[in-house]
Design a binder for these strands. Sequence first.
DNA 1: GTGTGTTTTTTGTTGCAACATAAATGCAGT
DNA 2: ACTGCATTTATGTTGCAACAAAAAACACAC
Lengths: 234, 234
Amino acid sequence: MASSTQLVIEDDRQPARLGDRVYQQIKEKLIRGAYEPGDKLTVRGLAEDLRVSSTPARDAINRLALEGALVYAGPKTVIVPHLEPQALEEITLMRLALEGLAAEKAAARVVDEDIEALKEMQLQINAGLDERRYAEALWSNKEFHFLIYKLCGMPYLLATIETLWLRIGASFNDLYPEFAEAKYGVHNHMAAIEGLVERDGSAVRAAIESDIRDGYRRIKRANRERHAGRSRPA
Amino acid sequence: MASSTQLVIEDDRQPARLGDRVYQQIKEKLIRGAYEPGDKLTVRGLAEDLRVSSTPARDAINRLALEGALVYAGPKTVIVPHLEPQALEEITLMRLALEGLAAEKAAARVVDEDIEALKEMQLQINAGLDERRYAEALWSNKEFHFLIYKLCGMPYLLATIETLWLRIGASFNDLYPEFAEAKYGVHNHMAAIEGLVERDGSAVRAAIESDIRDGYRRIKRANRERHAGRSRPA
DNA sequence: GTGTGTTTTTTGTTGCAACATAAATGCAGT
DNA sequence: ACTGCATTTATGTTGCAACAAAAAACACAC
């Protein structure tokens, strides 16, 4: 919707492969909450929306489904997944293991500029929260975390963590307003920065783990409260 | 080459999608060591070998590359990856985090039949080792580990761990003879079984972590010794 | 209305040809 | 021999039509 008809150059770092572009766009929409859990995606529908043929659209859908960002509701039906409590718990346990690892290793390689960038990003989170610009705050929150994880220099780990975030992104966005009320995560983020300053890997890990656990509790509660009003999520 | 011309039914659990079949076959070859690090795979080459069109072949290659089981050596060149020390370390750290998690959670859900199956599998590993049937022993070793990981009932975790094994599979096979000399892993496996018997999650985690660490040291040494004779791996 | 069987429409997958470009090859020139 | 460049070959990606199968729409009996 935002892009003009079929301009080839959108920006100078456009992925060479068309399928990658489609993938990135869907991924972005997913993280930003443009889709709701249960929404159905089709090859031809995507192809038409993004003005490409079915091959790249199909590539993107398959890739997203492979990563768990989309799920099969039937042999020919892929949808944006609902956040089942069991899936949320599994993802949270994996996040604790993997992001904990990344956080711990980050402390060994951080330099002062990184810490400045982190503080800057935290300011943006706070601003977004204060002004009730939740989508923006959520985005900044993601940036904050990945700023840390990037430090450890483990590309495959980073990619794996990204798929975990992608997997809960849609539902996260969906719940965010109620989720963000209590200045979520600020304390933990400050503790993480402090740990980085001290180059104390255990402290950074503890802060990140605490952040993940707090988020887990909060989103579980929000989810419960929301479903209290309806008979079933679907 | 092995299959007849275009028989539709090969076995009754054949994946519906052709691309999945290609994927499974390459994956199998990779884990069994049919390819060597550096081997180049092409869409048309695979398509011809497996008597399919380029679309499923391309799907399989892209998926494998996405999982890291194949890597890009150039924009149009995918190869079986070499095991760089840095990549090995990253994968090992992720394995410790994820397989440690799976091992710990497995203790809470194990039943006696599972333990019997595990003991049986260990017998097969020992037999394979004794008779110098290394590929078989390696396969049984994989089965042993995944028998444990399956217990925790976390499907996405299992899938992620599988991609880690796939990623080091080719090089593992390549190095296995020298790697297996010293009855690798038997002690750790017994400790894991013992921990399962006691329903002691920490003990199972410790045993699996120890197993992973032992394997890491051993394969690193094997790799070093091998490269001592040559100027460069390639 | 509810459930069941049938028809129609939609959908993913596959094979294939065209295209742009990367990789391989050949060839001077030194 | 070896490097640098031009030519040729090989390769990944894309778009598209055909097909089988699933999903949706529909009709009808109870």
